[in-house]
Write a protein that binds this DNA or RNA. Sequence first.
DNA 1: CTGAAAGCGCTTACAG
DNA 2: CTGAAAGCGCTTACAG
Lengths: 324, 324
Amino acid sequence: MKPNIHDVAKIAGVSSTTVSRVLNNRGYISEKTKEKVYKAMEEINYFPNDLARSLFNKRTNLIGLIIPNSSNPFYGELTFHIESICASLGYKLLLCNSLNRIDKEEKYLEMLIRNQVDGVVVVTYNRGILNYEKQNLSVVAIDHYLSKNIPVVGSDNYSGGKKATELLIMKGCQYIVHINGPIELQTPANLRRKAYEDVMKEQGRLPITYEVSPLQSHKEVISKLFDEHPEVDGIFASDDLIAASVIAESKKRGKEIPTQLKVVGYDGTEAVQVLLPELTTIQQPIDLIAKSAIDILLKQIEGEFNNFPLETYLPVKLLEGGTT
Amino acid sequence: MKPNIHDVAKIAGVSSTTVSRVLNNRGYISEKTKEKVYKAMEEINYFPNDLARSLFNKRTNLIGLIIPNSSNPFYGELTFHIESICASLGYKLLLCNSLNRIDKEEKYLEMLIRNQVDGVVVVTYNRGILNYEKQNLSVVAIDHYLSKNIPVVGSDNYSGGKKATELLIMKGCQYIVHINGPIELQTPANLRRKAYEDVMKEQGRLPITYEVSPLQSHKEVISKLFDEHPEVDGIFASDDLIAASVIAESKKRGKEIPTQLKVVGYDGTEAVQVLLPELTTIQQPIDLIAKSAIDILLKQIEGEFNNFPLETYLPVKLLEGGTT
DNA sequence: CTGAAAGCGCTTACAG
DNA sequence: CTGAAAGCGCTTACAG
C-alpha cells in the first residue's frame, strides 16, 4: 500500500494537520518539527496524492489539449511547446488526438470536464458544434474561431499569404495557383487565401484556388490542378505537407523546380527544415503561439477576463529555399 | 458551482447512493428511478467528478508517457498511436517531454506518481538512473533497456540493420559507413549497429561507425565523415533525420545521390514519407509498437505478471526510394 | 506552534 | 429495490 499523510504523521510523531502544513509550507511550524516530518516522508518514500489535494482545492493544474493528430509535425511541435510551457508553470497536460472528428472531440471534452481540467487548448475544425461555453470552462483556440467569446491565437496569416504570393510574383511567375483547405471551415487560415486573392487582383491577375480536405489525400486534387492548368509556374500551398505533395507530383510530371515551377509552403516546422530544407515556406512562430495561448488560458483560469485579446496574430517569417 | 451527486439526488428525489448506483450501473434499480436520475443529470448538466471516483477506487485510468520530444516525427507519431489506443480503452494520457534530460525525467516521474497514474510508458536514454521499480509502478519501455524487470518493446533492430546494410551491398556500394547514436546508451538500437558490423565483417569489409549525439546537431559529425572518407559511397543512418542531413551535406558537396552515394535511413514515419518520399528507409511498425507496449502495460496494471514477454521486437519493412 | 473535526465528491459494504 | 454511514487522502478554519 502507498503511504499516506497519516503514516507520515505517525512516524514523525505529529498530527496529519502538521504534516499537511509542512507540505504546503503554511502557518508557523518549528524547524524541528519540519525536519522530523521531512525525515519521515523520506523514510517511507511518501509522495502526496494530488487527486486528494485537487479534490479539496477545486484546482487540478491540469490542462487539456485537443489537436487533430500529433503525427503531423506542426501539431507535434505545437504540442511540445505547449506541454513544455505548462510543465514550467506547474501544469500537466492531458493529450487528445481528435482526428478532427466531432464525435471524438465531444467525448474528449466530456472526459476533460470529468477530470476537472482547469482549462483547454483546442485546435479543431468543428466550429460551433461544441458548446464550450455552457460548461463555463476556460478555453483558448489555436488558429480556429470557435465562438465570439473564445480567444483565438495564430500566426499572422494575412501577412504570410501576402509574403508568399508577392515572392512568387517577384520571382517572375506568370500563373500562380493557390491550394488551401475548404473555405467553409472558417479558420484564420482563410486569411492566407484572402491575401493571395487580394495580391493577385491588385496585380490584375485571376486568383485560382484549389481546395483539399484536411482528412483526405491531396494527390488527386494536385493532379487535377496540373491537368487543368498545365501552364502553372507558381504554387502557394497553405501548408508544407501539401507543398511536398506538389513537389512530388511535379517531379513525376518532369516539371523542374524552380525553373519551370516555383513552390511556397506554410508552417516551417523543424521537421520540414531538416527533411525538406530546400522548401521555401512561411514559418509560423509555433513557440510564441504556444506561449500566447497558455498566457491567455491562464488569465481566464485566474478570472482575469477582459485582460486578454480575443484575437492574437503573431509574426511570420519567410524562409527562402531552393524551390523558388 | 458545478453540480454534484447530491444535487442530482435532490432533484431526482432519491439518495446519492442511488444516483451513484445508476451512474455505475450496479445493483438493482427500478427503471423508473433510473429515468428520474438520468433526467435530473441532464437537467443540471451533471458530469461525475473523476477525481473523487479515482480517489476512492485507487484507479485513475491515467497513463503517463515520457518521450524526449514530440516535435520529432517518430515520437509525434508514437504519441499519436499510444494516445489513440489508450483513449479506445478508456485510458487518458499525461504527456511529458523530457528532452532526454535526467532532471526533467525525475520531475516528471514524481509528478506522475503524485497524480496516481496506473502506469507509465517511457522512452528515455537515461538508463538505470531512475528507480522505477522502487515505486512499484507499472512501467513499459520503448526501444530502451531500463532494467532487467522492465519490459522493452521496439522494432526488430537487428533485422532492420541487416536489411539496410545488405541493400547497400547489393546495390554495389564499396565503402559503406554507418551513423548511430553513442554506443554507451545501451539501447536496442545498438542492434542496428551490430547488424551492420556483422554483415560487413561477413563480407570481409571494415565496419566504420560515426557517432552522433541525440542532443546535438549532426552536421559537424557528418561533415567530418565526408572529409575523412571521401570515398564513401553508401551510408546507413540510424534514423531518417540523420539521413536527411546526410543528403543535404552530400548535395552541398556536389556528390550525386544515388549515383555517387546511396543512403538508407531508419524509422519511415508518415512525415518522412510525405516530406522526403525518395528516401530509402527501414520502416518501424510504430502502430504495432504502441499496441504492444500498451498491451504489456495493461497486463502489469491488472497484475498479470509473467504473462508478457520482457522483450518484444516487431518486424520492420524496407521502403525503397530513390536514394538507393 | 499544534491538533481534532469537518468536508471536497464520490463509492461501497451493511442494513432494511 | 433503496438509504445512512464510513472512508478514499487530503486541507483548512477553528480552538487552544
